[in-house]
């Protein structure tokens, strides 16, 4: 199934991975993507991390996302090598740098959210002994955000259809027509989701079982090993770089 640039689960992935393996890789991609340099030994680590992200995305046939993550990294390196940070190129190289750092991380985030169900997340967090007081609100947020995004899209559409244009010039109007209705809907959605969860027997204090599949296979160990290797390489690159 495709990976969408949105925040929600999009369907059964081609390649199933344990959520914990995905989280481990996500953390390493975050560190390397944001912190590793674009030249020297650190750049090799950056290329390795981007390649991992691209391979996972390509495995889900998310060609555009995979290609854009690779392209962003390549642009970042090219920009670092050829753009002199003076005058207007300073702004350009700054923007390219920012995009090149963040885009692979965002792509990885989309991959994790698009391929993991809420139940898998909850089950994985429980295995990691994370308390219910954290996992349940976390699950609610995972359900709430895409719903709120849908609401927001609906409100935009209604605004456009009504011919209400909200420029940057009118922050008051933006607040009144955009944010207030969205906030009202957010409250209502929160109430309704809570009601749905309670009447389906969700309770903080009771034990629950789970059908969600969690468990490490060879592939998961391989992903974790790759993540750890990239992380160690990043540490090593930092040490040997003057």
């Amino acid at each position: 199934m495709p990976v969408s640039p949105g925040l929600a689960y999009t369907g059964q992935p081609n390649l199933w991975l344990d959520p914990r393996a995905k989280l481990a890789l996500f953390i390493v991609v975050n560190i390397v993507g944001l912190a590793a340099p674009f030249s020297g030994p650190g750049a090799v680590v950056r290329i390795a991390a981007t390649a991992l992200v691209a391979v996972l995305l390509a495995g889900e046939q998310a060609w555009w996302m995979a290609a854009s993550a690779v392209a962003a990294t390549a642009c970042g390196m090219a920009g670092y090598a050829w753009l002199q940070p003076t005058g207007w190129t300073l702004v350009a190289s700054g923007l390219i740098n920012l995009l090149a750092r963040f885009w692979p991380v965002i792509a990885m985030g989309c991959y994790v959210l698009s391929t993991t169900t809420v139940s898998e997340f909850i089950a994985a967090l429980r295995r990691m002994r994370v308390p219910t007081a954290f996992t349940i609100p976390f699950a609610v947020v995972m359900r709430f955000l895409p719903t709120l995004a849908q609401e927001s899209a609906g409100i935009s559409e209604a605004l456009r259809s009504r011919g209400l244009r909200l420029g940057v010039a009118r922050p008051g109007a933006w607040l009144e027509y955009r944010l207030v209705p969205l906030a009202m809907r957010a409250v209502a959605i929160g109430d309704e989701l809570t009601a749905a969860a309670l009447t389906r027997g969700l309770d903080r204090d009771t034990e629950r079982t789970s059908l969600a599949r969690v468990g490490f296979g060879e592939l998961d160990w391989a992903v974790v090993a790759a993540a750890v290797a990239v992380f160690i390489a990043w540490l090593a690159a930092r040490l040997i770089t003057p």
């Binding site: 809420v118 139940s119 995972m142 719903t147 389906r200 969700l202 629950r208 789970s210």
Partner: peptide
Amino acid sequence: TQFFTTDVASELAFGCENFALPP
């Protein structure tokens, strides 16, 4: 707004999981 999970299979199991029924 009645779904707690984000996929159909998990949603069908959700209530039973909360009742702590055997998998």
